[in-house]
Design a protein around this nucleic acid. Sequence first.
RNA 1: GGGGCGGUAGCUCAGUUGGUCAGAGCAGAGGACUCAUAAUCCUUUUGUCGUGGGUUCAAGCCCCACCCGCCCUACCA
Length: 514
Amino acid sequence: MTSEQTPFFITTAISYPNGVPHIGHAYEVIATDAMARFKRLDGYDVFFMTGTDEHGQKMLQTAEREGITPRELAQRNSDAFQAMNDELGISYDRFIRTTDSDHYAAAQAIWKRMEANGDIYLDKYAGWYSVRDEAFHAEDDTEVREDGLRYSKETDTEVVWTEEESYFFRLSAYQDKLLELYKSQPEFGAPHTRFNEVIRFVERGLEDLSISRTTFDWGVPVPGNKDHVMYVWVDALTNYLTGTGFPDIESESFKKYWPADVHVIGKDISRFHAIYWPAFLMSAKLPLPKRVMIHGFLHNNGVKMSKSLGNVVAPADFVSQYGLDQVRYFFLREVPFGADGSYSHDSIVGRMNSDLANNLGNLAQRSLSMVAKNCGGAVPTPVELTDADQQILADAGKLLEICRDTFSRQDFSKALEAIWTVLGDTNAYFADQAPWVLRKTDLARMETVLYVTLEVVRRVALLVQPVMPAAAASLLEVLGQPEGSAREFGSFDTVLVAGTELPPPAPIFPKLDS
RNA sequence: GGGGCGGUAGCUCAGUUGGUCAGAGCAGAGGACUCAUAAUCCUUUUGUCGUGGGUUCAAGCCCCACCCGCCCUACCA
């Protein structure tokens, strides 16, 4: 059975745990989780990975400042990220940590493969280094001031010419191959606006990339040279391979899941995923991921989140205030995936009340309570369907294909919009048919209208499972749909069985006063 | 400086390759109904489609210039 299923490997970026998770991290895992759940329900063999990227100088610095070891810091904050995932109901299959032992093996293996391909060489990295910033600055970004010293124009700190031994990756050799990739696979990067930035960047020319450090040791050791640790991105990007069983490329899991179907990332790291990562893989002679989906950032009331403004929201606070499914729905419905988004108390409450409680929750409640009171609490029996009945059923019937299409592009908001359009039509249908009038005039017709309505709600409930797992489960429960295959997309085109006993209905979505 | 994207009703935004394209949702106003979580349904107000030119029989949709906003511009996640 499993072997017949098409594999689908999806990842989030791994989070850098030198701080605690905020709503932006939550946004990424929620979206990726919805995608993973959708594919599972649609019969795919899904492998969904998320985790933490724990090496690098910043981790070391943060740990030193707190008087603990980087390993302790990583453990503490990685645990916080994992806890966030669990609070958000994220259905990850592996929570990977770059300090996991199998990851060291994978990172060193890809290094050796790139080295074997002749793309790694030892040289000196030279440039204007700011001790204060602990970073190099491009010469154009520096200037000699009146005191005769050179300063970074950006940070106003003194820079000194520094040379450091470093391994380099021959990124410059991959410019044409990358451009060829972008041309032949126009869906490799999305959305187009962000992908265009990447392409133009590559077109302007690529320099070789320094990929090792000698100034600190919190990282994966470079094979064969104990003085160097890997540049954190070589290490971090490789996590996607680690999860599939790499370096054992003959393993069943590697053969099944690699290459990844989608890497979901934030717009801040598009270059690493859309340029460096495919170049590394080309060099290592490994297949490339099929798609890099770049999402935007969330703003609070249109204002960027920042600690100094005090508008950083902890995911747990959000969930306790509005409810998990409500938060998941809000972000996926309100923000076109790929664009920046904005949230506010009013906009969340608006979606909760209007879309969830009123349009969906109330439609279920008004139809189910009529069934409970007038049909003996069982699925009613339809008779001949009118044009209106057939129309609304046909509209609902198209939703699975629409969702497949939109989800394949991670266009969650469009999928939900299409579903809610049908819900709006169904509320109009219900009012137009007026089953509460038919109750006194034509019981068979009343039962038919209620049946049709329930059938639409069932299909909608199936399709919103990836976005709102718990609420959808409750809906399917009151529709008498048992867990298991009845709740998978394979059952989308089946219909409710008349006479099925239904539990007493209860409202699924609470309302909030604004 | 170079590059990428936007600027459409009060708000958030849809608008494929130019020809009912001036729209949707929310908010506001009026009405209807009572099955339902005072939910739902119907009707309805506002737009110089950033500015100025141009191409065309025809332009939010193409071209040019300009104004405004956001983002990127390599080795600090």
